[in-house]
Nucleic acid binder design. Structure first.
Length: 434
DNA sequence: TCTGGGGTCCTCTCTCAA
DNA sequence: TCTGTTGAGAGAGGACCC
């Protein structure tokens, strides 16, 4: 439900952003880590940093950095594999707290959210006071810290929360202001001195293009005629950035919308070349995608295979089915057929399976025979029921049976930041595939 | 140096039908 | 019947976000 802002009044938007979220949760659960450099992420050779404490940032460690580089920069740090489920739990606690302020909460990932508090001000006081009070409650009830930006739009509130954050300086971490308020009318003065890369939508590629045009700050960007931006960056991005440079952002705070695709992908510690191992991984990924689709009561028509090679080149191949499915064998079949279109002999570093074109799963309609592909539409809910009753590994594709170890299933959050340091077992699938 | 996983959106190209 | 135009949809790739 979209609630329009009160007529004739400025919107008051809060952007709440947790400080070093995953790393802070680890410190919370292991108090002996307090004050130390802690790096969370994929601990294996191909892992990346998901989050790190400000002590690690002082040494130059940043999120999304290859873990190998983080180890070189900060060898004294404590390196921990991520615990995705634990962060989801902490994120739910945060969400409940935010929704006690207003129902107009738009989560962004696990660790940040926008709140439209325009309607809550009469009850709770002015937006800056709500921001201070929220910070205090996050500290008292979750034992975590966050930074909050307050402004009249999502764009400026988000940039303001970045200004509110702690800083990693050469002499050590320094606390930030915690809350930064940009008053209505002050948006341009706040925005224009900022580096243009701070605008959402300006990543490395667009940043390079803008710098080549002599655009270094948001103020520089504002001086470029809109048509010139459209010519250089394309219609959508050119118009978008021109509006942002003039603080024109009317996007409302929208509570979570349903995802448009569901995917699973995995980078392997060693490149795969054997057709059997690739096929088995596709079955595993398809099973995980199908399981999540059924949990959401949805089905999809388009199956996309993603393959990343040893040299990091990436290709995708997709196929649209005649009707939506949430059945793992059908998704796996489509993915395996797509894999036949790809030359894999140079080694595969990553495989991914996605399903898009989603619609609600249909349970009504004529019952189809169990034999043949469409029979899986009836079998899949039964698989789901068994898993709900006896656990996820109670039932699964025979091809994923690993002798002695049960079913080798993939779960969301597993290897979220790359393969970890666990020893990789050689594949023990039975030769006859049973 | 050596680059994750789960997403969204945009652009370009191709095909097909009207 | 043939040709050219146009628009929709599918497929592929890239950029970006957290």
């Amino acid at each position: 439900v979209r609630v329009p802002p009160p007529a004739g009044r400025q919107r008051r938007i809060l952007h709440v952003d947790m400080d070093a979220f995953f790393a802070s949760v680890e410190v919370l659960d292991q108090p002996s880590l307090a004050g130390k450099a802690v790096v969370v992420g994929g601990t294996g050779p191909r892992g990346v940093v998901a989050s790190c404490t400000y002590q690690a940032r002082v040494a130059g460690v940043r999120s999304a950095m290859p873990m190998a580089r983080a180890r070189r920069l900060c060898p004294q740090a404590v390196f921990l594999p991520g615990r995705y489920d634990r962060y989801v739990e902490a994120s739910r606690q945060l969400g409940a707290l935010l929704e006690s302020v207003t129902p107009l909460v738009e989560p962004v990932g696990l660790d940040e959210a926008f709140l439209d508090v325009s309607g809550a001000e009469r009850l709770l006081g002015p937006a800056p006071r709500i921001a201070q009070w929220l910070r205090q409650r996050v500290g008292e009830e979750l034992s975590l810290s966050c930074s909050v930006g307050v402004a009249s739009s999502k764009l400026v509130a988000k940039l303001a929360s970045e200004e509110a954050k702690p800083r990693a300086t050469p002499t050590g971490p320094e606390p930030g202001p915690g809350v930064v308020v940009v008053e209505a009318g002050g948006e341009i003065d706040f925005l224009h001195p900022l580096p243009v890369e701070r605008l959402p939508g300006v990543g490395p590629a667009t940043g390079r293009r803008l710098r080549s045009m002599g655009v270094l700050t948001v103020g520089d960007l504002a001086q470029v005629p809109r048509q010139a931006l459209v010519s250089a960056l394309g219609k959508a991005l050119g118009n978008h950035l021109h509006q942002l440079a003039w603080a024109q952002d009317g996007h409302p705070v929208e509570p979570a919308v349903a995802a448009k695709s569901v995917s699973h992908e995995e980078t392997y510690a060693e490149d795969l070349v054997s057709g059997d191992r690739l096929g088995r991984q596709l079955v595993r990924l398809a099973d995980a995608v199908a399981w999540r689709l059924r949990c959401q009561g949805r089905a999809g028509r388009t199956v996309t295979l993603k393959v990343r090679f040893a040299d990091f080149a990436t290709v995708t191949r997709s196929r649209t089915l005649s009707r939506p499915t949430d059945a793992a064998p059908l998704i796996a079949d489509a993915a395996c057929q797509l894999l036949e279109q790809v030359e894999v002999s140079r080694g595969v570093r990553l495989l991914g399976v996605a399903v898009s074109g989603l619609s609600p799963a249909r349970l009504e309609g004529p019952q189809l025979p169990l034999s043949g592909p469409s029979g899986w539409d009836r079998a899949s809910p039964a698989v789901e029921a068994v898993r709900q009753r006896f656990g996820p590994s109670a039932l699964g594709p025979a091809r994923l049976l690993d002798s002695g170890a049960g079913l080798d299933l993939k779960r969301r959050g597993e290897a979220q930041w790359g393969p970890d340091r666990r020893v990789v077992k050689p594949s023990k699938v039975r030769e006859n595939g049973s």
